[in-house]
C-alpha cells in the first residue's frame, strides 16, 4: 500500500513537473535576478552585461530624483481606489440583473461580456483619443462645466475622473460579471423560498443572504480586478518602467528597481483590500 502511494506521488510530481521546471526557469530565477539587478547599475556592452553594486542607489533615485514616478504612483493609487469599488459594485449589479428571469438573457450576456474580447491597449487608446469613452455630450451639461472650472478639491477630482472615464471603467468588468453570475446561479433556490415564506422582502434577502454568501466571490473579483488594472498596458507606471528600461542613464538596473517597487505596491494593495474584505465578511456572518 505504501509503495502504491509512493508510486502515485511520483506520477503526480511527473504531471506537475513542467510547471515546476517552468517556475524555476521563467519565474523564480528572473524574480531573484531582477531583485539582484535592482541593486546594481547595469551597463550593456558588446562583451555582455556589466553590473556595479550601488546599494540602494536605484531606489533612492526613484523616490528622490525621479519625481514623475512618485507622481504616477499616486495617481495610479488614487484612480485604483476609485475605480475598483465601482467595478465590483457595478459588475455585481449587472450580475444580479442578469440573474432575473428576463427575456433576451443570452443577448444581454453577450453584450456585457464583449469588452473582455476587444479591450486591448491600442483599441482603448484609440477610443480615448476619439473621446468615445465619456458619456455622450456630457460637456454640454452645467454640472460638467462647473466641475471642469474648478478641478481642485478631492470630490471634484473624483467626479471629473469618473465622468471622463466611465465607459473604460465599465469595460473592465466583463469577467467579474461572469464570476458573480456563476456564483448567483449556484445559490440554493430553497433558501430563497424559505425566506419568502418567512416574509423577507427582496431587499432584505439581498442584504442578509445573497451578499454575505457572495463574500468569497467578491474577494476573488477584488484580486482579479486589482491585478488586471495594474498590469493593463495603458497604465502610466508600466509605460514609465518600459521607457526607463531602454534609457541610457537609467537602464535595466533602475527599471528593475521600479518594477520591484511596483510589485510591492500591488501586493500591499491586494493584502489591504483582501484583509478588509475578510474582516467585513466575518462580521456579516456573526
Amino acid at each position: 500500500m505504501k509503495k502504491l502511494r509512493n508510486k502515485n506521488s511520483i506520477t503526480g510530481l511527473l504531471f506537475v513537473s513542467p510547471w515546476i521546471i517552468g517556475f524555476l526557469i521563467f519565474t523564480a530565477f528572473p524574480l531573484l535576478y531582477s531583485l539582484y539587478l535592482s541593486f546594481h547599475e547595469v551597463k550593456i556592452t558588446t562583451s555582455g552585461i556589466k553590473t556595479k553594486f550601488i546599494k540602494f542607489g536605484n531606489y533612492e533615485y526613484a523616490f528622490v530624483v525621479d519625481g514623475s514616478f512618485l507622481e504616477k504612483v499616486t495617481t495610479y493609487l488614487e484612480e485604483m481606489v476609485i475605480s475598483v469599488p465601482i467595478i465590483i459594485v457595478f459588475s455585481l449589479i449587472i450580475a444580479l440583473l442578469l440573474n432575473q428571469k428576463i427575456k433576451f438573457r443570452g443577448m444581454f450576456r453577450t453584450i456585457f461580456f464583449l469588452p473582455v474580447i476587444i479591450a486591448s491597449g491600442p483599441v482603448i487608446k484609440e477610443l480615448i483619443d476619439q473621446g468615445i469613452t465619456t458619456i455622450p455630450s456630457i460637456e454640454q451639461y452645467a454640472i460638467y462645466q462647473a466641475l471642469n472650472d474648478n478641478p481642485e478639491g478631492f470630490f471634484n477630482g473624483i467626479l471629473l475622473y469618473l465622468i471622463k472615464n466611465l465607459i473604460v471603467i465599465l469595460w473592465y468588468s466583463g469577467v467579474q460579471i461572469l464570476i458573480f453570475l456563476a456564483a448567483l446561479q449556484k445559490m440554493d433556490k430553497q433558501i430563497f423560498e424559505a425566506a419568502k415564506i418567512d416574509g423577507a422582502s427582496n431587499w432584505e434577502f439581498f442584504w442578509k443572504i445573497t451578499l454575505p454568501s457572495l463574500v468569497p466571490m467578491i474577494i476573488v473579483n477584488l484580486i482579479y480586478t486589482i491585478v488586471m488594472y495594474s498590469i493593463f498596458s495603458l497604465n502610466p507606471i508600466i509605460d514609465h518602467i518600459q521607457k526607463n528600461m531602454f534609457k541610457v542613464n537609467t537602464g535595466f538596473g533602475y527599471a528593475s528597481a521600479l518594477s520591484w517597487i511596483y510589485f510591492i505596491i500591488i501586493a500591499l494593495a491586494l493584502a489591504i483590500s483582501v484583509g478588509v474584505m475578510t474582516l467585513k465578511g466575518k462580521k456579516n456572518y456573526t
Partner: peptide, 27 residues
C-alpha cells in the same frame, strides 16, 4: 494525486498570478 509539497506548489501557482510581468520581464 497527493504528494509532498503539493500545497506549496498550489500557493505558488496562485502567487504567479499577482506577479506583474514587468518584474520578470528584464531577466
Amino acid at each position: 494525486f497527493e504528494f509532498k509539497g503539493k500545497k506549496i506548489i498550489f500557493v505558488l501557482v496562485l502567487a504567479t498570478f499577482i506577479i506583474p510581468p514587468q518584474v520578470t520581464l528584464i531577466p
